[in-house]
Amino acid sequence: MNQFVYDIAVWLDNTAWSTLLHESYYMYNWVESIHVLSLIICLGMLFLIDLRMLGYALPNVPASSIANRLNLPMLLGFSIMVFTGLLLFYAVPVRSTQSVWFRAKMILLLGCAINAFLFHKRMNESVSSWDNDARAPGRIRLGAALSLGFWSLVVICGRFIAYDWFDCEYTDVGSLSQMLSGCIDGQTRY
């Protein structure tokens, strides 16, 4: 599996656009800046929705209003965030796929997606009975708290990707870190 992921990453890395993006000081930094700005929009909306469910923000505004109205800007921010995130991955594919933080971030994003699906499902089933309450019922609050936790960890892992503490070239062969990162021979060339 690690070899397969590595081969795809090497193939991506060998494409001209990947090199151009990686080597372009301004373009790479602009893409990363837009990634962060769209993250601020997406998470800003998401945090307000979650804090509303927990009873900490906009308690007098119906919960369904908050969730429905902020959904569009949140998805807009999310779409730009994903697109720029893919570009950032495309610029540095080999190191990213062999990064323990990148892998953790992908797993956490999966957790975010599952939690969001369950959160919306539960909310749509019951919102009419508690829409005007300052705090949502326990199960919805749990979903909101998990959302805050998952996304905070996503941001922390995303931030950690920039650091080389556990990069394959700085860790021992056969170590736990190398196993989790999926290090294989030849990775350090990239």
Binding site: V36, I40, I41, L43, G44, F47, L48, R159
Partner: peptide, 14 residues
Amino acid sequence: HLLAMALLGGAVVV
């Protein structure tokens, strides 16, 4: 810092 910027940004945007 980034998470707090998201919170601040969300409040400003809304």
